[in-house]
Computed example of a mutant assay.
Amino acid sequence: MRQVGVNSLKMGDILGKTIFSSSGRVLLGKGVKLSPLYIAKLKDMGISILYIEDDRFNDVIVEDVISEEHRREAMEILEKSTRFVRLGKDLDGFEFKKIINKIVEEILFKKDILVNMMDMRSLDNQMFAHSVNVCVLSIVLGKAMYLDREKLDNLATGAILHDIGKVKMDPKLVSGATILTPEEIELLKTHTILGFEDLRKRKDLNLVIAHIAFQHHEHMNGTGYPRQLKEGEINPLAQIVGIADLYDKFTSDHSDVKRIMPHEACEILMGLAGTLYPFEMVRLFLRNIAAYPTGITVRLNTGEIGVVVDQNLSMPVRPVVRVFDESDFGSNVVKEYNMVEKRTIFIQEVLG
């Protein structure tokens, strides 16, 4: 299996990972042979990357942090809940607690975690996919910080609901599809207040969850919003969600920032450590992120082109790369470089 850009798809390519709709429904299942009609539909949906099967990479497994079933279920519950909120009804707190418990349990059960799969995200499911991803990333960091189970549950719930204040806003403000005016940007920022006001009224949710929604855009140096809080004034769980939120926005389509590759996002986050976010939190977060996810195509400093086929948990920026004899992946495997062992070899460029 390897990752490709949607513009590089060819008729007959076989889908390697299932693509879901905003409600968690399967749009295209793993194993589907792509026709010109399917490829055109994927482009219309705004999907920019996906995974395809490739005989040369049959042994390459791209694992998500959580199962497809739990990701689908979480998106389905989110989609249903946002419909309720728009209609003025209550969230189903029991349903949220059930799926949060499943996701937390699954992540706690895994011994070693490295986030190395990139989202196949469409325009229609951006908000729900983002919320689930922020939830997963937050739990991964919370686990690395050895948070107790109660804090992890509150963190996960606050993370999946961190943007709930956007639900009643004009879709134009939250879609990321248009450039907003300064006035619209200020209006969008009020989603933290709207989310807090909504969540704090819910007796079935801990008040900490409301504060996560309220504070996840606050920064240690006082440049955040809505209250310009500084170091020591921000709830640590909200800071965790803030880091996860920013990383996911950087590495996915249809957000309010331009998509960049994971290694670039990691560099930016490291640059913000100690200024916007606590240094130790950022360090632990990056230890669990694959800078070069499995399946991506790269050019090495040797000039060779290959695919990342495995990760080194001890050094996420130095993966294993399989190189072929031609830039378009010739049939003969030349070699594999384990970049922990081959220190003079490094990735020069990620190819789309």
Results as ranks from 00 to 15, higher is better:
A144M: 12
T190H: 00
I19A: 03
K168D: 14
K168F: 04
L276E: 07
I347L: 09
S23E: 09
G224A: 15
S48Q: 04
R83V: 03
M281L: 05
A244C: 07
N125R: 07
H191Q: 09
V85S: 12
A244Y: 01
L173F: 03
D325T: 02
L194Y: 14
I347R: 09
E336F: 07
D119T: 14
K168V: 11
L50C: 07
L137M: 11
D256I: 09
D55T: 04
V174M: 12
M315Q: 09
A177I: 15
K258V: 13
T251M: 11
A40L: 07
V309I: 01
S22W: 08
G306Q: 04
V136D: 05
M11Q: 07
S23Q: 11
G29M: 10
T18D: 12
N133K: 13
H216K: 07
L229C: 06
F279D: 10
L286W: 00
I185W: 07
D170P: 14
L187F: 07
C135P: 02
K102I: 06
K110M: 06
H217N: 05
E76A: 03
D54Q: 08
K30M: 14
H191G: 05
L15V: 15
D54W: 02
R227W: 14
L313C: 07
L152T: 10
M45L: 04
S314C: 10
M339H: 06
E233G: 15
E183G: 14
K97Y: 01
L276T: 14
V340Q: 07
S35W: 05
G271R: 10
I289L: 06
E76V: 00
V257R: 02
S81P: 03
I234E: 13
V174N: 04
L87Y: 06
E73H: 11
K249L: 12
V136C: 06
E197S: 02
E349M: 02
L42R: 10
V6N: 04
G88A: 01
F96I: 11
D90I: 03
K97D: 13
P171R: 14
D90F: 12
F84E: 09
K166F: 02
D198T: 00
L42V: 09
F20M: 06
L123W: 05
E150S: 12
F57R: 10
L152I: 03
A177F: 03
R200M: 05
D54P: 02
H217R: 08
K33L: 00
V104M: 15
E233F: 08
I234W: 04
N221F: 07
L199W: 02
I103T: 11
L276Y: 08
R343E: 15
E304S: 00
L91C: 01
R121F: 05
M1L: 06
V6I: 15
I212K: 04
I19C: 06
I212L: 01
L272Y: 12
E95G: 09
M1V: 01
D124I: 08
V320T: 06
Y277Q: 05
A74N: 14
N58E: 08
E304Y: 00
G12L: 06
V174Q: 03
Y51R: 08
I234M: 10
R227P: 12
T178F: 15
I234V: 07
I52H: 08
D124G: 11
A156C: 03
